[in-house]
């Protein structure tokens, strides 16, 4: 089974995975596009923990996995570049945590915020690049057939459908970059709010 979900709050994500396990759905994979892949089995009480990290090298990633395994965690899913890392306590204990200080638990949110904002920057840069290419006129990415809108009947529809794929090809990246930019901005600011709140609570 596949489910599309996006979380800014790792606690909510962990609670969601625990809830799914209770219904007999166990996390198998989490794709970069936000899909959770589940396998079906006998319902179980599980306590998932999510870490969020970037690794420079495969050796760093291996060292990280070895540390968690040594410390009693089973790595459920995560690759060197997946950012999200999913763990279950080997002893099934509900009280185990992957963080022992509030600072380190809060840092996850700071990392998430950074990556989201980096993606917003990429989306904006892309959008500006497209505007430059089309001479700062969005009209230049629409229908370009001369006199198209004066045509009538079959001629109009033939010309319209002939150019439509080209128009979609030109507009889709623009729309997509705008939507992604806004989505990442919302996601990143949510993570930032949680981070600030966690750091405040500490004082």
């Amino acid at each position: 089974m596949r489910k599309f979900k996006v979380f800014a709050d790792f606690k909510e994500e962990e609670a969601y995975l625990n809830e799914m396990a209770k219904k007999g759905y166990f996390l198998k994979k989490h794709s970069a596009f936000g899909f959770y892949h589940f396998t079906e089995g006998t319902p179980e009480e599980l306590y998932y923990h999510v870490d969020y990290r970037k690794f420079k090298t495969q050796a760093d990633f291996e060292d990280y996995l070895a540390l968690f395994e040594d410390a009693g965690w089973r790595h459920v899913y995560g690759t060197k570049n997946s950012l999200n890392q999913y763990f279950l306590p080997k002893d099934g204990n509900a009280d185990d945590d992957i963080f022992s200080t509030k600072d380190s638990a809060a840092l996850r949110y700071k990392h998430l915020n950074k990556i989201c904002y980096a993606n917003v920057t990429v989306a904006i840069a892309y959008f500006i690049a497209v505007l430059i290419i089309y001479d700062f006129s969005l009209a230049n990415i629409g229908f370009l057939t001369q006199g198209l809108w004066e045509m009538t009947g079959t001629l109009f529809w033939m010309a319209f459908f002939f150019e439509l794929p080209f128009v979609l090809f030109r507009t889709a990246p623009v729309v997509l970059s705008l939507v992604m930019g806004i989505a990442y901005a919302v996601w990143g600011s949510k993570a930032k709010r949680i981070y600030s709140k966690m750091m405040e609570d500490e004082k």
């Binding site: 540390l67 410390a71 992957i98 022992s100 380190s104 638990a105």
Partner: peptide, 22 residues
Amino acid sequence: MQKVEELSNGRVRVAAGTMYGA
């Protein structure tokens, strides 16, 4: 992680994620 627990007489326990971040 083990050494820290030993040195602090079990008072300070560093969890895996905190350890890696440190």
